[in-house]
Amino acid sequence: MPGEVILESRRASKNFGDLTAVDSVDYQLRKGESAGIIGPNGAGKTTFFNILTGLFPPSAGTIHFQGQDITNMSADLRVGLGMVRTFQLVSVFDTLPVLDNLILAAVRAGTEYKNKVQFVLGSSHPGNLEKECKNTLEMVGIAEKSRVLTADLSYGDKRKLEIAMALALKPEVLLLDEPLAGLSDLEIIDVMELMNNLRGKITLVVIEHKVSQLAGLVSRLSVMHEGRLIIEGEPEKILRDPMVRRVYWGEDDSTDETCN
């Protein structure tokens, strides 16, 4: 069912001094699919995301989006192409009201404010834009908190807000970096439901530490270990794979139960 390759890394590597965080990773993502990347702490998953999304360029190798070489493209232009991400440590704007977090994303993805003068001097809350942002908040289930100061949100609500920010950008590809990290069990259910709703509508890549949660969500799992992509395939097969089990059992006690 998935279509052509939309996002691809070719032998992408990243070194920090002597440490090789990502080691010549070949990765392909097809349009419309939901994929997961798992691996123990320090496996290089987030660094790989950072290369893909343009936080910093790879030390070697190339990144391609819809056939275009974007290796040295800045992050903001990648967003313009439709590549949007969230962060492992929730990253929202605490000093602004909840709704204001979405305004700029909606402006970026929308057709209004293409006039620069309007962007600089016009009102930030015209009715239709505000309505659109409220709808997005509705989608993640925090619409009633639109006027609250973001700092006053719970961590789970902040996570939902961050996903709303990403959705307001109307992404082609959405990269979620450990969206369940730090959430309570109840909040995990909410966010899982949210991701399940997105599945199929947009191309989705999820980094996750809680492996069992991912199995039901994605159609393909990739495992990273010590900077390398060691195995890829259907979730059930991957989780039964002896090598994967060794990587998890051997090196990271905290994930014992999630492999069962």
Binding site: V79, G80, L96
Partner: peptide, 12 residues
């Protein structure tokens, strides 16, 4: 508050 995050909202 967080300039990098703004870049990831698609702004130069």
């Amino acid at each position: 508050e967080n300039e990098t995050r703004v870049q990831f909202l698609g702004y130069n």
